[in-house]
Design a protein around this nucleic acid. Structure first.
Lengths: 368, 368
DNA sequence: GTGAAAGCGCTAACAG
DNA sequence: CTGTTAGCGCTTTCAC
């Protein structure tokens, strides 16, 4: 049998094609149809692997006759190039990595979608790695991001809502590798985030303007898989705005619950039952706002007369429920991050620790 | 300068380390900190690369003295192995690919989460590829899945809600590569899906039992990025159940809208304004059901007295709204798929075209 | 216990 | 227009 590798490999001992090589090994899928490589195509067409590669990638640099023969071999062997190997050899990947925690926090998918929209157009492949804060804290994965960055397999990496070890960040910064952070702060990298305090100010100022007297705050505990939840900053913004307006902050009107409708509902029901109850509540997330709505509903409070409610995020359902809320760009932030990444890849010199603050917008509906 | 490659590479012309080699090229990141490879570690420790590899992977097979020296070099160079290269050389990846369209259809994230939960425990890496039906239809990507399967870079691939070219499926089937399909049917692969007709039967039977006389159906148009939306099958199930109960099907009580609250709302408002309006509506998705709720609300219809509403999916908000709906396992289906995949990888012989039907459950709330 | 070298599948620089 | 070969960074036989 004439083998492809007779010609191109120097194993003086035994000629090996990917075919007979496979048969030497105790492979479990011995019965599987073996994949043909560029060597097989070259052998069948009677040319070198370089010519096969050229035929596929730069057809114009190959004579028509050769091209025809190669293509025929490609057809016959049903050859599909290994694009990973190709990228490796090319030292250029057209592919970026996205690290993100997979959870149901609203906006996760939208953001991812925004990113994918941009890179689809740029013909850049998107590889999403599921990874959460807990995993990152794990010893074994302490260098996870760094190894992704230095692997040379990706043109860049976008990290979503994850806390990254400061040392690791430092090492990556030294490599000048294109990396964009979403919802995570670091002075050494381009970062995208929303101004949570400003968002809170927007909401509280609106409530003040509407003449509510006792404006309370509902925040949420950090999610285990997440880095920052923004709740803290929103609380601070709430306090600042209140104080700036000459109002006092009533600790009894501040409540932190889980990030769930149910937990918020239970806690807020109690809060709304105290004599000196708030007449307006700014919630750190729409999910919390839903809990508030449910509690108010059950207590027979009229929204917004007895109680005004303002949320944060503008999740799909907010419009349906008439919930006033602070909208943050989700798909938009993904696009923004992707376009920034594209620039960084094309011109690494532009890697500056720019901190982009995404625009926030108060959407007034019927709950306030 | 003594270079790592002097010893291990046969470039008779010029000794090259990954370091001085880099400096030869006009790299844009010339100033970047270069990553050290196993060759550098070997050189520094004065051993072969094989020994470095062994030290890291099978420490017991290396003498203590050598091990110490190698580890010191590793430390000094801050060496991190390239796990992609390692996997390649090892012919074993501990990593599977998940192909999924990134959209906001409920359940997408939950399913992904279910998958990731299982593989996290199995220490198997999860690479998620964003790819939708449109992309798949594209000439250029016609062999996308196949090339992933044959790349040898993944131990298996899970495909979510995507239509796959029959020919491609055939070729992949021939390779006996571990592949699991979610929400897509093919007799040659293990498949996970819900029995949409049965789900519809559950819903309609419930409405019949509650004595509703004119049960209508609200379906939705296929999403561009999706393969099957289930709406068609649910409609068929609705019709079958009605007929089996001796009821007639009123075409005026069947309406197909977009997959959006707003569009459903607009269309259903008209439908509910006809003289002979339905007194119950089974919706192919909760999103449609929300549109119905909104329309009914605006028309002053009492739910469930004037109009009963049953949805499908059981999205988060359904509970909050008291929506009766058909629940399908989402995180559960992801787990199921992952566990199936694990079995396939461990014992490829078990690859049978098993069609798993996931359990459906009617959750009765206040809307019916 | 350790080293040499093949091999993974391809691209690109260079030579002819 | 075509072939040769280094190189990507590692693991894994096979000798010594």
């Amino acid at each position: 049998m004439l083998c492809a590798n007779d010609m191109y490999r120097d194993s003086g001992f035994q000629p090996l094609t990917s075919n007979n090589f496979d048969s030497l090994l105790p492979k479990p899928d011995d019965w599987a149809v073996t994949k043909s490589s560029i060597y097989d195509v070259a052998a069948l067409a009677g040319v070198s692997i370089a010519t096969v590669s050229r035929t596929l990638n730069q057809p114009h640099r190959v004579s028509e006759a050769t091209r025809a023969r190669v293509m025929e071999a490609v057809q016959k062997l049903d050859y599909t190039p290994d694009f990973e190997a190709a990228a490796r050899a090319r030292h250029h990947n057209d592919r970026i990595a996205v690290l993100a925690p997979l959870n149901t926090y609203p906006g996760f998918t939208q953001r991812l979608r925004g990113i994918s929209l941009v890179f689809e157009e740029l013909q850049t492949e998107l590889i999403i790695f599921q990874i959460d804060a807990q995993k990152l804290r794990n010893e074994q994965h302490s260098k996870y991001i760094e190894s992704l960055a230095t692997s040379g397999r990706y043109d860049g990496v976008i990290v979503m809502s994850l806390p990254i070890d400061a040392q690791e960040l430092t090492r990556i910064a030294e490599t000048h590798f294109p990396m964009v952070l979403i919802e995570t702060s670091d002075s050494r990298f381009p970062t995208l985030k929303v101004d949570n305090k400003e968002g809170a100010r927007l909401a509280v100022a609106h409530l003040l303007e509407k003449n509510y007297k006792n404006i309370g705050f509902i925040g949420f505990n950090a999610l285990a898989s997440y880095s920052t939840n923004g709740s803290k900053a929103r609380e601070q913004g709430y306090i600042d705005t209140l104080l700036a307006a000459g109002r006092s902050v009533n600790p009894n009107h501040i409540l932190i619950s889980d990030y769930s409708i149910e937990d918020t509902y239970l806690k807020v029901k109690l809060m709304l039952s105290i004599p000196d109850r708030p007449d307006a509540l700014f919630c750190a997330s729409d999910i919390n706002a839903l809990g508030v709505l449910k509690a108010a509903n059950e207590l027979g409070l009229d929204i917004p007369k007895d109680l005004a409610v303002v949320g944060f995020d503008d999740i799909d359902i907010a419009d349906y429920l008439g919930l006033t809320t602070v909208r943050q760009p989700l798909e938009g932030s993904g696009k923004e991050a992707a376009m920034l990444m594209d620039k960084l890849i094309k011109d690494p010199a532009t890697i500056k620790p720019s901190q982009v603050l995404l625009p926030l917008e108060l959407i007034v509906r019927t709950s306030s």
